[in-house]
Design a protein around this nucleic acid. Structure first.
Length: 575
RNA sequence: UCGGGGAUAGUUUAAUGGUAAAACACCUGACUCUGGAUCAGGAAUUUGGGGUUCGAGUCCCUGUCCCCGAGCCA
């Protein structure tokens, strides 16, 4: 795909091209996407997947899916299945190359024995606390474990008995013998195996010793013939250990390359925290539409195209980045503007009665079916017929008794166009005992069919509407950001990001009225509700009730104008 | 304090010793049967100091700031 004439797209491409020039990997590019099945994937994982799978795609190489399942306590098959499904949804393919680090447990065990025989690993009887104590700190070197110089025979015997299950959890570890004075903590005799009498989601109770990340990852890459092991900068100082293990084992060593971490404003990523939201009921589940998880974004109505677009727009570098969530919103608007059919839905209904609407021979209001385009951006999406009659619903927010300057929606004596229908003029507002407007009495101009009149008079406002008799009831869920600040960690002294948690991020609207054709919609289908935003039919939908999630609002110039005017007014009042 | 990394408009990324640019965000305006979309325009950037060079965001020296690291997590 990439040719010699195109400039490298990012620093990783430069590295690959350098390797291709020197022939280090014989021109091969083979990556891997290595999730731990301990939760659902979130938006930053989509970015990582895009880097891993994308690099292979760009150079005609391969990318494996490999689950990094070396900690049985956290990992579950539910997550394996969820991750696979999400990756396919994003459009990535690994053919038959689905692997698990746990596939390599036996090989890893034998390699550990090899290291012991070489005098490069030993069984250590120190407790976790003691290990920490012996490790030293930032400025002081660590001290050697008293068990560091056991004989090869004793180490081999003890290690075998660890595997046999003779010792309790935490009683011993296998450690690499490197350098307790090394400035890089990872090189201070890192633990390779810990004892864990726990059931593993794939290997069951076959093992009671489990390899640590560092002792599993590089060798897994090596076994699979990975050329470029891409990871985030958090692993930068693990690279020396990665290479030490491969070199001591005398096995093929891939090149680890680190890229910057990725995050989003107004949210937190991080599986532990997201898991906490789920467990504490702060959200309804991993796939809550407010969650930055990919299952959440999907349910919210985000398309894989929009998410991949975000990933490619944001580039790849070594700096940790915080992407403004507005860019994600731009990506989904751009995608859905092109693809989503337009429909009309009234979220907060206000009844409109057209007093001069014609009646039939029986004195019943007639029904006129008007034609509506499905998508002005794409003629091929055709048109549909929608019913117009004497009683309609419009949006409560589209009527103001005291219309502000620049208002061109409805108000006393004002005329607006009903999209695809007629001009109507408001004559009267019926109020309830509390003074709330509950009904508008209007007249229509029969000459205005099709949206214009013979006299050519200008009508600035165009409203969406539904026919009261034909409308279908719906529940509509509106979402706000999970946090009230762009940087959730920007919390008062002594408090954490939870201080900025938005406890009002979900608004459920009931009694919404949508046009009749929507009753045929299927869960996952996406629409533009004219003037209101993009919405996606939720799986909670039943034959009796349609449930929609608002994916994102449309850009709203008016609200901006109005809030600015208000601000100006306030400032004026202060002066 | 020690080790590892990083720093270009508000945000993200280009510019690979030769006119500092794009997208998003922001501000104007035009157009519109969605106050949507679209279009046109605007404001805005090289972490400080020194050096090399005809010329430095880029090379050298030196400061500053930010991130990561002391799991038997990944």
């Amino acid at each position: 795909m990439s040719t010699e004439t195109t400039a490298p797209a990012n620093f990783i491409h430069e590295i690959v091209e350098e390797h291709n020039r020197t022939g280090r990997f014989g021109g091969r590019v083979h990556t891997r996407f290595p999730p731990e099945p301990s939760g659902y994937l979130h938006i930053a994982h989509a970015k990582v997947a895009s880097i891993d799978f994308g690099l292979a795609r760009d150079y005609g190489g391969k990318c494996n899916l490999r689950f990094d399942d070396t900690n049985p306590i956290r990992e579950e098959t539910e997550y394996v299945d969820g991750i696979i499904e999400t990756l396919h949804w994003l459009g990535w393919d690994w053919e038959d190359r689905l692997y698990f680090a746990s596939d390599y447990f036996q090989q890893l065990y034998e390699w550990a024995q090899l290291l012991i025989r070489k005098g490069k690993a030993y069984v250590c009887d120190l407790s976790a606390d003691e290990v920490r104590e012996y490790r030293g700190d930032l400025t002081t070197p660590g001290r050697n474990s008293p068990w560091r110089d056991r004989s090869v025979e004793e180490n081999l015997d003890l290690f075998a008995r660890m595997k046999q299950g003779e010792f309790p959890d935490g009683s011993r570890t296998l450690r690499a013998k490197i350098d307790m004075a090394h400035p890089n903590f990872n090189m201070r005799d890192p633990v390779m195996y810990r004892i864990l009498h726990a059931e593993h989601h794939r290997t069951g109770t076959e093992w009671c010793i489990y390899p640590m990340y560092d002792w599993a990852h590089g060798q897994s890459d090596s076994i699979e013939g990975v050329t470029h092991s891409l990871c985030d900068v958090g692993y930068e100082d693990h690279r020396p250990l990665y290479e030490w293990f491969c070199n001591e084992l005398g096995i093929y060593c891939p090149q680890q390359v680190e890229f910057g971490r990725f995050s989003l404003t107004y949210t937190v990523l991080g599986k532990r925290i997201l898991k906490r939201f789920v467990n504490e009921g702060l959200v309804h589940g991993w796939d809550d539409p407010r969650m930055p998880t990919l299952v959440g974004l999907r349910r919210r109505g985000y398309t894989p195209e929009a998410i991949n677009d975000l990933c490619s727009r944001t580039g790849v570098s070594k700096t940790n980045t915080v992407i403004e969530i507005q860019l994600l919103e731009h990506c989904i608007r751009e995608d859905l503007n092109r693809r989503a059919p337009r429909v009309m839905a009234v979220l907060k209904p206000l009844k409109v009665v057209i007093e001069n609407w014609p009646v039939d021979a029986d004195g019943r209001p007639t029904v006129e079916w008007v034609e509506a385009v499905n998508n002005p951006e794409d003629e091929s999406m055709g048109t549909r017929q929608i019913p117009f009659s004497r009683e309609l619903y419009i949006e409560q927010d589209d009527y103001r008794e005291d219309a502000p300057k620049g208002w061109f929606r409805l108000g006393p004596g004002r005329e607006v166009r009903l999209k695809h229908g007629y001009y109507i003029k408001c004559h009267d507002a019926v109020k309830d005992a509390d003074g709330n407007v509950v009904e508008l009495r209007c007249t229509y101009d029969p000459e205005s069919a099709g949206g214009q009149t013979p006299d050519g008079r200008k009508v600035r406002g165009t409203l969406h509407w539904v026919s009261a008799a034909h409308a279908v009831d719906a529940e509509v869920r509106l979402y706000d950001y999970l946090f009230t600040k762009p940087d959730p960690n920007d919390a008062p002294e002594g408090q954490d990001f939870m201080a900025n948690f938005n406890h009002d991020s979900e608004t459920i609207l009931t009694g919404c009225k949508v046009e009749p054709g929507l009753s045929a919609a299927r869960p996952g289908e996406r629409f533009q509700f004219l003037r209101m935003g993009y919405f996606c039919l939720d799986p909670d939908t039943t034959p009796e009730l349609l449930v929609f999630n608002r994916t994102v609002e449309l850009k709203d110039t008016w609200s901006k104008v109005e809030s600015k005017a208000e601000k100006k007014e306030q400032e004026g009042a202060i002066r």
